[in-house]
């Protein structure tokens, strides 16, 4: 039997439960691969009722999820109870969200699930409960490091059929970006990206394009020194490691179709430089993929959307894209399959 995908609950007060239910409702029309949700099953049933969705929920072990999937939404039931109302996280939010993540990591590390898809959490809710990692990605990297005994560094990639981008710095104030980017960070990021594009996306010789930090990639030092002082030497080291890499490229001219044909992934120096092009090209279909972990993890490219949680207005489009990509990567089908269906 096919190994299922493990889907986390995310923040129970957010839209994660809504879009998980909606994705299962649409499973046949969308030909979705089997997945199971790791959650408080009663909570999920209450949310389904509140949304007027007649969705049978079946407690199931990961091993049984694929067999159940066509007739009921398989749920691996957690010991933690969730009581939060839509839009209103409560004391149960963080413990259940964290337990769901832990169980998903255990399942993929043990090979009971082929990949994990994580629903959005609210960072400030987790922080208030004493969660010490900056986000889900770092938390999963630490669980993976514990389990494998090797230090894992998670690298965020945003992927869509049109474009893949990796922001080298992510949620960093722009004033700190110029100080925080350094050769080692760029080189390490590129190594992780190249390895995972080869091993998971089946791109035999990944081509990486690196954006300059400054306008026009610094224009020979007239528009900032970092591109010559940091980015260019980092690219030389990446090339010396045998990776097909080019740059630093001016970020404004590297995303049109002819330019995109020359690379598989763009490394950008800051959040907006990476997110603006992919949101422009693929607003609803971009998926967040974590590279550098010993398992496949994807997530939808949006937040908890507290304002529309529990209303039925949340679109499962990004979650569906994340489920599809996780399935193809988890099943080892790589980029060939993605290119065909993308």
């Amino acid at each position: 039997m096919m190994r299922p995908l493990a889907l986390t609950l995310g923040e129970p007060a957010g839209i994660g439960p809504d879009i998980a239910l909606a994705a299962w409702r649409d499973r046949r029309a969308l030909a979705l691969p089997p997945f199971y949700v790791i959650a408080d099953a009663d909570f999920l049933a209450r949310r389904a009722a509140a949304l007027d969705l007649a969705i049978p929920i079946s407690a199931a072990r990961p091993e049984d999820a694929a067999a159940v999937f066509d007739s009921a939404l398989p749920v691996e039931n957690l010991a933690q109870r969730a009581t939060a109302s839509p839009g209103r996280p409560d004391m149960t939010s963080a413990p259940v969200a964290i337990a769901s993540l832990r169980a998903a990591a255990a399942a993929v590390l043990a090979g009971r699930a082929c990949a994990m898809v994580t629903n959005p959490v609210a960072k400030n809710v987790l922080y208030r409960s004493g969660f010490s990692a900056p986000g889900q990605t770092e938390f999963l990297a630490s669980l993976a490091s514990e389990a494998t005994g090797k230090l894992c560094k998670g690298v965020m990639m945003l992927w869509s059929p049109q474009l893949a981008v990796v922001p080298v710095t992510i949620h960093l104030p722009l004033a700190e970006v110029a100080q925080r980017i350094n050769e080692d960070l760029i080189v390490e990021t590129a190594r992780v990206v190249a390895a995972d594009l080869r091993d998971r996306f089946a791109i035999l010789a990944p081509r990486i394009a690196v954006a300059g930090l400054n306008p026009h990639a610094g224009e020979g030092g007239f528009l900032g020194h970092e591109d010559d002082a940091i980015v260019r030497p980092a690219i030389a080291r990446i090339a010396a490691a045998g990776i097909d890499v080019r740059g630093p490229l001016p970020a404004d001219t590297m995303f049109h179709p002819a330019a995109r044909a020359k690379y598989d992934v763009a490394l950008c120096m800051y959040h907006d430089q990476a997110l603006i092009p992919i949101k422009t090209l693929s607003f609803d279909s971009a998926v967040n993929v974590t590279l550098g972990l010993p398992f496949v993890r994807t997530s939808p490219d949006h937040g908890t959307a507290f304002d529309i949680a529990g209303t039925g207005r949340a679109s499962p489009a990004s979650l569906v894209a994340a489920i599809r990509l996780a399935h193809r990567l988890g099943a080892g089908k790589g980029a060939a399959a993605i290119a065909v269906t993308g």
């Binding site: 959040h271 907006d272 092009p277 422009t280």
Partner: peptide, 29 residues
Amino acid sequence: GADTMFHRKGVDAFVVMLHDQGHITAKLL
């Protein structure tokens, strides 16, 4: 947020802070 702002409707002008925030968008659209 500059990454989602350009999808807003009924806006006559978007004001961005940085060269690349505006130029990446303009050159794609």
